[in-house]
Design a protein around this nucleic acid. Sequence first.
RNA 1: GGAGGGUUAGCGAAGUGGUCAAACGCGGCAGACUGUAAAUCUGUUCCUUCGGGUUCCAUGGUUCAAAUCCAUGACCCUCCA
Length: 372
Amino acid sequence: MKVEYKLQKKEKNTNARLGKIIYGDKEFETPMFMPVGTQATVKTLSPEQVKECNAGIILANTYHLWLRPGEDIVKKAGGLHKFMNYDGPILTDSGGFQVFSLAKPKDISEEGVKFKNQYNGDSLFLTPEKSIDIQEKLGSDIAICFDECVGLPATYEYTKSSMERTLRWAKRCKDAHKDENQALFAVVQGGESKELREYCAKKLVEMDFDGYTIGGTSVGEEKPIQYKMVEYGVKYLPEDKVRYLMGVGDPIDIVENVIRGIDIFDCVSPTRLARHGHAYTRYGKINLKNAKFKEDFTPVEKDCDCYACKHYTKGYINHLIKSEESFGATLLSIHNIRYLIRLTEELRDAIKNDNILEYRERFIKDYYGEKK
RNA sequence: GGAGGGUUAGCGAAGUGGUCAAACGCGGCAGACUGUAAAUCUGUUCCUUCGGGUUCCAUGGUUCAAAUCCAUGACCCUCCA
């Protein structure tokens, strides 16, 4: 089902925006956080648990589902929604991040990117057309143009030529894309360069996509650089189209980038950190594996409304994580996802009240201040 | 009663004269993690006032030097009576 974006309100003092994603008869407010479910599952959670966190869109991955179980099988199953039993909107990433995380520079050509199947060693070749074909077969609601996510540091020359190729790939994706029920978003690249980011954004807007994403961040850059990349990327994007910052999910980064005009975020960290025993809290990140929590029979966060905080204690979760019981990862994933979604809910309120700068100040004081 | 084998750090287990404060695994204690090659990875784990000190069942011995060789004892395991 094709999603639609409506801008509702702009915050008075910043570029922050309140909007909504319309999905059939359902509506989801933005800014929003999308939980990541790479392999057609948000790791350790059932779709019911994901929804209980008040999640809207979730993200799945073209590359992984291409390799396993294969897009034809998902299609045969009735599409991604039926396959994984999720009736909310689903976005598929194009495999562009895997160009960064899995492929070597020599594997990338104008035509596409060579991969080695990690499960059986087969040679694989992903192209813009192939990525779109897979995403159409998967039946996601939002497809992403195949891009190259460039790691940092990178030379200006490489960043420029890669970005130009990403633009050509975006055109090929648009030409290949046929499914009218599926939205297609394009990725702004251009590394740390103002000139390249702005150029890329303008060119993509000329091609006219359903939404735009800022890519090439969350690759290990310093925070101020990330914020600049977003500012450059967002500047020439149309107001009536949704803006998604790919891979970003550190709480402070969500606050800072909402202020800069981002509507959607995704990040693996709430679920990965959960599996590794960490929890986000208003007063910073805590490691539930630490011995000091063994006899702490209070919830992870006392005023959190998530299932884990309503029913379980730090001491119990410490026990589960130390015993490698998967329920520990489930509880912390629920908490961390709910934490980030709650953060976006608070940011939406701040936009409604035109006091997002005050919100940021309070957030930083709490999150990075003296630990309680 | 006889014949073998064994006892090493919190646990399991290497090491069989010097390069051994002693591999490795587990456990413990910490740390990292940003469009998921990640329920993974890294550090650390006898004591220390960082000079050093005290270890490899116990005691005695051989040797310049012993976890390693010898003697005796304790305990454990297997087999034979």
